[in-house]
Each structure stands twice: as C-alpha cells, then as structure tokens.
C-alpha cells in the first residue's frame, strides 16, 4: 500500500515535466535561446559567413551616429501613438453595432472582415487606394482641394498612409474584443443606472467603460505589440521609402541583416536588441498585470 502511494506520488511529480518536455524543448530552441544568441551576435562584426570579430559596443555606438536609426525610432513612436487610436475607434464601432436588429450578426462579421485578410493583401489594397493618377483617395483629395497627393511617394505623408492601412484591421480587432465585452456587461447595473437617470456619456464613462476593463487590457496588449511589430505593410507598400522615410526598427533590421543585400549581422542584431528592449518594457507591464490577475483569482 505504501509502495503504491509512493508510485502515484512519483508519477504526479514527474508527469508535468513529461507533458511539458516536447513543447518546452521546441520553444527553448527556437525562441528562448535565439534571444540570447542575438544579443551575443550584436557584440560582433559579422557578415554571416566568415569569421566573427569582437567589437564590443561598437555596433551600438554606430547606431547612435546613424540617421536611419533615429528616423526608424521616431516612426516607431508615431506608429505606437497613432495605433492606440484603434482602441477608442474600435469601441465606437462596437457601440454602433451592439444592437439587436435583423441581420446585425452579418454586419458584425463583415465589419470584422479586414482582420482576417493578410496584411500583404491589406497593403496591396491600400497601395491601390492611394495610387496617384487612378487611386480613389487622390481623386477625392483632388476633388476637394484641386490638387492630387501621391500619399506613399511623399515623405511627409507616407508613414501616415501606411499606419492608416494598419489601423483598418486593428480597429476591427478592437471592435470584436469590445463587442464580446459589451455582451457580458451586467444588465442590472445598467438598468439601475438608467433609473438614476444616467445616460449617454456619463453612463458610458462611469458604468460601461469600467466594466470593459478586461477587454481594454487585451486591446492594449495586441495594439501595442502590433504597432511595434509593424513590418509587412511597410515592406509591401513603401519598401521603407521614399528615401527611407517610412523605416521602422523592424524593417531597418531586415534591410541590414536579412534582405538580399543585408550582410551586417552584428549591426542588424544590435537594432533587434534595441527593439527588443523597447518591447520588453511593455511585455513586463503586461506580465505583471497578468500575474496580479493570476494571484487574485
């Protein structure tokens, strides 16, 4: 009997590790170790094939003298700030669609549609939408102001044009999070507040938004991560141009280390480490918050 109990206790001690082993192994090899390897590579001068030369912090020092680095950093900031608009915009669309009229389910699905399509296709659609001579947007702007603007060919507007394309699916994502959140709002509280004559903005601000906090948290996470990961749209719509004005760190890194002509592995790794450090700030905030939720229940 004692022997049997010990066997079962053993089984319960090692079972979780057997269940975890394959997943942890894969995840360590392809995700955890590469992070440290990249940090390590960033201290070398390396073309990817020949021998590595230790250069210490030189790659980082060079970054500080590189104008492209500052352009990328600034664009990352613009992306981040403007992408956050997807959260209130998504809430607005969700409030607009949170009704029970006939056919509303189909409307909700179709509003969500842009999120399902790949960013490559979204990028192509918007390139076409912005195209000078025949694109719809220059036509509209031309009609309103008398002069057409080639959004993606103009250094002043190109980044904003790409971000607008990215906001389209991102708003759809936030909308679906808020629709789910609105669906789970406590109706008694809403009715009680209505009795107290709360309506419109004050109702939204004091009763609804506090109850939507879990949805807002997830919307924040996916929007911040999405903004800092932006790569596909830039690659499809502008290839970083005109004159490198739409580069962000992720694209700048790709140009330096991964593209056809990119052989500066050390330099590229250093850019990646900077982007990683920026994201780590947000990742830490998210993890702490999730940990608190975990402890509370």
């Amino acid at each position: 009997m004692a022997g049997l109990r010990r066997k079962r206790w053993n089984q319960r001690t090692y079972a979780p590790w057997l269940f975890l082993a394959p997943g942890m192994l894969m995840f360590s090899i392809y995700v955890v170790f590469p992070i440290f390897q990249s940090i390590w590579i960033s201290f070398y001068d390396w073309d990817g094939l020949g021998p590595k030369t230790w250069v210490g912090l030189d790659n980082y020092a060079n970054l500080l003298d590189d104008e492209s680095f500052y352009t990328s950093l600034q664009n990352n900031l613009i992306w981040l700030l403007l992408y956050l608009l997807a959260i209130p915009a998504g809430l607005a669309v969700a409030l607009f669609l949170n009704q029970s009229v006939t056919g509303i389910r189909l409307y909700k699905s179709l509003f969500f549609f842009p999120f399902v399509i790949s960013q490559v296709v979204v990028g192509l659609i918007f390139s076409w939408f912005y195209a000078p001579d025949f694109g719809l947007l220059p036509k509209i702007i031309g009609f309103l102001t008398g002069s057409e603007i080639a959004v993606l060919a103009d250094e002043r507007y190109a980044t904003y044009g790409v971000i607008a394309a990215g906001l389209w699916p991102q708003i759809a994502y936030c909308m679906i999070l808020y629709l789910t959140g609105l669906n789970n709002i406590n109706p008694e509280q809403v009715e009680a507040a209505r009795m107290d004559n709360a309506k419109g903005w004050s109702m939204l601000w004091h009763i609804i938004i506090p109850q939507l906090r879990p949805a807002t948290f997830i919307a924040m996470v996916v929007t911040v991560i999405g903004a800092l990961r932006s790569f596909d749209l830039i690659s499809i719509m502008t290839v970083g141009g005109p004159y490198g004005s739409t580069r962000v760190l992720s694209y700048f890194m790709y140009e330096q280390a991964l593209s056809e002509y990119g052989v500066a592995m050390g330099y590229g790794a250093a850019i990646a480490v900077v982007l990683f450090a920026i994201m780590l700030v947000f990742i830490s905030i998210f993890i702490v918050r999730m940990l608190q939720q975990e402890r509370n229940g």
């Binding site: 590469p34 990817g48 990961r229």
Partner: peptide
C-alpha cells in the same frame, strides 16, 4: 509552474527580428 507559464506568454510577445538571425542559422 508560473515561471514556465510566463516564459511561454512573454516569448509570444517578442519581436521577430530578435529571433531571425539565429533561427535562420539554425
């Protein structure tokens, strides 16, 4: 338990570029 769990969660958020060079070499 929680450390392993949050390793999976955090890894899920990292930028692809920090993985790209080592993953391609591997």
């Amino acid at each position: 338990n929680l450390i392993v769990f949050f390793m999976f969660v955090a890894g899920n958020f990292v930028p692809f570029q920090i993985l790209a060079i080592p993953v391609r070499n591997l």
